[in-house]
Write a protein that binds this DNA or RNA. Structure first.
Length: 439
RNA sequence: GCCCUGGUGGUGUAGGGGCUAUCAUGUGGGCCUGUCGAGCCCACGACUCGGGUUCAAAUCCCGGCCAGGGCGCCA
């Protein structure tokens, strides 16, 4: 039998319960983390959003009825405890609650599918199957508190610079952008696709008075990649700025990244400690490494990389051994960058594209874009694509498209940098990968 | 998609032709008034599925499914 909540309400969270508290009567609500029944005294550990408080029930100090109620509790049951705060040198944190009344709000089946106290670790697959329980672990929910703070920081940073938040469609008609595989879906009587990137939409905004925009939204890629760095659904932080070139948006990006790291370091101290992370705020500007120099560096490490190739995994790893923080790779060959990337006027074989790396991990790529209609058509054809299928996009370039630049930053990959997660799945509540579609 | 490795109680594991299938944690019960990875006692609970080899398969072989790692793919 469970109790109803009635007019009980939480007065404090665990982290607010301090030995020196001057309001001795409190109501805490949470889960039973541990039970230590010593016979004449029972210790309950009550866990809530970011802390654990010891509830101490000595048989001499609580009623016999309450004592039996406490004795019958099971791990992970949901309870509300009303009691008095007691300073106690023997208690964890020097403070404990002597209970007066307890509500059992809900029970938990036993045994649990994994151990929230982390005495026995569980594999990622087991954890993701029971993600709701996994997320009760402080080491797991800390990742999402940090991710949330990072996104908050990014929004504040961009809003302060008068960026406008936009929302572009995720249901799209065309698979003709080339490159990555798309997820096909049924759109009434037609076929449609899940959007792989807001790229073309945010560029079209450059031809409007919404000429500094950002979007934080999911992107979908139907690649069969099966690695620790790839997801089939991810969050992209996309930015596009008119009347700007790649240098402007690189400055914007590095300041945004450094600012987010500083902000997380300041506001998520406890979560970072839990994860054993000691974040260094990188100095700006970040180093710029020319693509041609990257090729030389990688080859000097004994990894074969030809000029004109995209970075292989081995090349990224070799680079990561040389560069130990954030850095840009610039002046990429036009050949291996998308059609909308602006080639260098003097040497069109080189483009105004850049990647932002953290050690061996690519976290962002961006560029100055092609804003000239005829050049864009030429570039689309050059990539073996049909300009006709880009009509609605290309039209925006015929009626006054300013020069512009932008980038997309992978929210999960950036979160990996902030939390030390080795597997990108750790940074998504319910990851979608090659095999996983539930929960 | 390719390569490698694996699948043993709820969880994490040991074992690797014949064992009562190991250990920890857990769960259920008992003892214990200062635990804090509490302790002690008792009990419970497992060999991924299908086929094959063999007197005998959790163990060897083949196939499926699932998972982990590496790579590729990732405009």
């Amino acid at each position: 039998m469970t109790d109803s909540l009635k007019d009980w309400r939480r007065t404090h969270y665990s982290r607010e319960v301090k030995p020196e508290m001057n309001s001795p009567k409190v109501t805490l609500m949470g889960w039973i983390h541990e039970i230590r029944d010593l016979g004449g005294i029972i210790f309950l550990l009550l866990r809530d959003r970011d802390g654990i408080t010891q509830i101490t029930a000595p048989s001499k100090k609580v009623s016999a009825k309450l004592f039996e109620e406490i004795r019958s509790l099971r791990k992970e049951s949901v309870v509300a405890v009303e009691g008095t705060v007691q300073e106690s040198p023997q208690a964890p944190g020097g403070v404990e609650i002597i209970p007066q009344r307890i509500l059992l709000l809900n029970t938990s089946h036993q045994p649990l599918p994994l151990d929230p106290t982390e005495k026995v670790r569980a594999e990622i697959d087991t954890r993701l199957d029971s993600r709701f329980l996994d997320l009760r672990k402080h080491s797991v929910n800390s990742i999402f508190k940090i991710k949330s703070r990072m996104l908050h920081s990014v929004r504040v940073f961009l809003e302060n610079q008068e960026f406008i938040e936009i929302n572009t469609p995720k249901l799209v008609a065309s698979a003709t952008e080339g490159g990555t595989e798309l997820f096909p879906i049924t759109y009434f009587e037609r076929e449609a696709f899940l959007g792989q990137s807001p790229q073309l939409y945010k560029q079209m905004m450059m031809a409007t008075s919404l000429d500094k925009v950002y979007e934080i939204a999911p992107i979908f890629r139907a690649e069969e990649h099966d690695t620790l760095r790839h997801l089939n659904e991810a969050i992209s932080i996309d930015v596009e700025v008119a009347f700007a070139d790649q240098k402007d948006v690189m400055t914007l990006l590095e300041n945004l990244v450094a600012n987010a790291i500083k902000d997380v370091k300041e506001h998520c101290r406890e979560e970072l400690d839990t994860l054993g992370m000691d974040l260094d705020v990188p100095e700006t500007p970040f180093p710029r490494v020319d693509y041609a120099e990257v090729v030389d560096l990688v080859n000097s490490k004994g990894v074969n990389l030809h000029y004109g190739d995209d970075l292989s995994r081995a090349a990224e790893k070799a680079l990561g051994e040389i560069m130990d923080s954030y850095y840009f790779i610039t002046n990429w060959p036009s050949e291996i960058k998308p059609f909308y990337v602006m080639p260098n006027r003097k040497n069109p074989k080189i483009s105004h594209a850049f990647d932002l790396m953290y050690r061996d991990l690519e976290i962002s790529s961006g560029a100055m874009r092609v804003h000239l209609h005829d050049l864009l058509v030429e570039r689309i054809k050059g990539k073996g694509l049909n300009p006709d299928s880009f009509n609605r996009y290309l039209a925006a370039f015929q009626y006054g498209m300013p020069p512009h630049a932008g980038w997309g930053l992978g929210a999960e990959r950036f979160t990996m940098c902030l939390t030390g997660a080795k597997n990108v799945r750790e940074t998504v509540l319910f990851p979608r990968d090659r095999r996983r579609l539930t929960p």
